[in-house]
Nucleic acid binder design. Structure first.
Lengths: 125, 125
DNA sequence: AACCTTATTGCAACTATGTTGCAATAATAG
DNA sequence: CTATTATTGCAACATAGTTGCAATAAGGTT
């Protein structure tokens, strides 16, 4: 039970994510919305939207948190199993809809995995 | 040209990494060595050791930086192509010597990738 | 061994990302 | 319209990591 009330701030953030297929970093979001809402509010709304599986989060190569729309996530089991791609040229980050299979590791139990790919996107290749 | 002088501090840190096959987070290292050297020194030594391909670094699931010994890295091309594994029970982090193949992505150029696996290690499974 | 050069270190101050407590505000049920 | 309480704003804090600069010390040279 993340988002209970559809406030102006929640709607604003949801609209932003609905206008793009790309991921957005929290830093970027705070910068874009700094005249409209407090950074604490942004952190908390993103948290709630992730609880509701409308967004999912992951860490970029520099440890900054990114969020993107969820497509395949249910609210129960919503790990981002797909990899995330960061373009070294334009900086764009998005979800890649391919499966990366993690091989079995002897005597270990794999629970989930994060894959971050760096390279050049369609427009920069 | 990372490490030029073999100072006491450099030797201390190298010894620590040589005594284990596990990765060590910078935070942990700062805590362990706080009576012996400054945190700035630690950051800088780790940086130099990575330049020399004696260590490699990667980000843990919470964005904290970890370092581990390099086995297969040359000083030219030393990406950590192998995945890193973090045990959700005991917290141990280490390198996993398996290959995770990233499939080709249409119209994109993959340059490198980071794979972080979470699960249970041999002792906690 | 004493000296010189400069890589390395320590310190303090700073940046950036993210968190917390609490009072004020506003969404929604009744 | 009113009451309840989820949500927000703010200020203060926490933590990871960086920077500038003066002091120190490694290691080559004499």
């Amino acid at each position: 039970m993340g988002v209970v009330r559809k406030t102006k701030s929640v709607q604003t953030i949801l609209e932003i994510f609905n206008q793009t297929e790309e991921a957005i970093s929290v830093v970027e979001l705070i910068e874009r919305l700094k005249s409209q809402m407090n950074k604490t509010t942004i952190y908390r709304i993103l948290e709630r939207l992730e609880e509701d599986a409308l967004l999912h989060s992951f860490l970029g190569h520099d440890g900054v948190k990114w969020y993107a729309k969820c497509h395949e996530c249910s609210s129960h089991d919503h790990h981002d199993v797909h990899p995330h791609f960061q373009c070294v040229d334009c900086g764009k980050v998005d979800c890649v809809e391919i499966d990366v299979t993690i091989p079995k590791i002897p005597n270990r139990q794999v629970m989930n995995s994060n894959v971050l790919i760096r390279g050049r996107c369609e427009e920069c290749v």
